[in-house]
Amino acid sequence: MLGCCLFAAGCASTEGPYPSKEIKLIVQAAPGGTSDTVSRVMASLAESSVGAPIVCENKPGASGALAFSYVARRPADGYTIGHAPVEIAIVRSLGYADIGPSDVSLICLVSKTAPALVVGSDSPWQTFEEFVSAATANPGQIVMANSGIGSIWHFNILLMEQGTGARFTHLPYGGSTPALVSVIGGHADAAVAGVGEVVSHVEAGKLRALAVFDANRSSVLSEVPTSHELGYPVGAPAWSGFFGPGGMPADRVAMLADAFETAFGTEEWAKLCRERGMEALYLDKDGFEEFALAQQEFFEREIPQLVRMEGP
């Protein structure tokens, strides 16, 4: 009798309808950051429509390259998926791992975060134009804190230099928070970080946002002009999506995409995006593929140029 039960259970776990056991969601960053929060919230919101637990596992390191490669090596059965941030389109260009969006099965995109340029609240520059002309007239005078060489916000600074002719002294930090703190403390003059990361300090009057690098105005910094309005169509946003190992069955991808879409429509998700300054943006498999491949192409084209410009 017991043997029968065990046998039946064994069969169910291998041949039953998908999903018949828990799904592992690999997060490429440490617990507590935006990637981790997005993944954990999405996982808990999507669980009920998936019908199986979605369990997050953090595998940080090498800008996410370790996690992307790990997921790509797992069986493409839909029981191991990963969080896909913008870095998945970057790590190959940085030489951290030979993997990109075209090597995996993209599932869907759920959010986007635009970069914002901020200066200290008592700094002399009131507008983006004043800031750019100061940085162009006195190359290297303005100290620009960044969240780490090779990070997405650092690329935005390099793109800004390329697009406007401004030249900065770069001050690298190990993340957005210390970079912003150095601007608040008056040690650096300016920084570029995600809208969600700067909005609280802007509202508290500690930082002043001069521009958001995006085509459309941000919902949380609605009074700040966009770079496109200002005539400099530069900017590379950060984003959050999900992916599985290459060659995942189409029905399982669609099933997960539907579950994430349901989660996307909940009030909890809208609230999280609002609080974290993210733009809730859903792209299904096809839309995400188109978007991510364009991003990959963009970074493969830009990074060698930017790095050459920056290098010694």
Partner: peptide, 24 residues
């Protein structure tokens, strides 16, 4: 509104979800 260590960085995120913004 600045984390003093790794744990308080996570705590700030948790407070934000409840609409509470640490800071002045």
């Amino acid at each position: 509104g600045i984390p003093g260590d790794a744990v308080s960085a996570v705590l700030i995120g948790a407070l934000l979800i409840h609409g509470i913004q640490p800071g002045p």
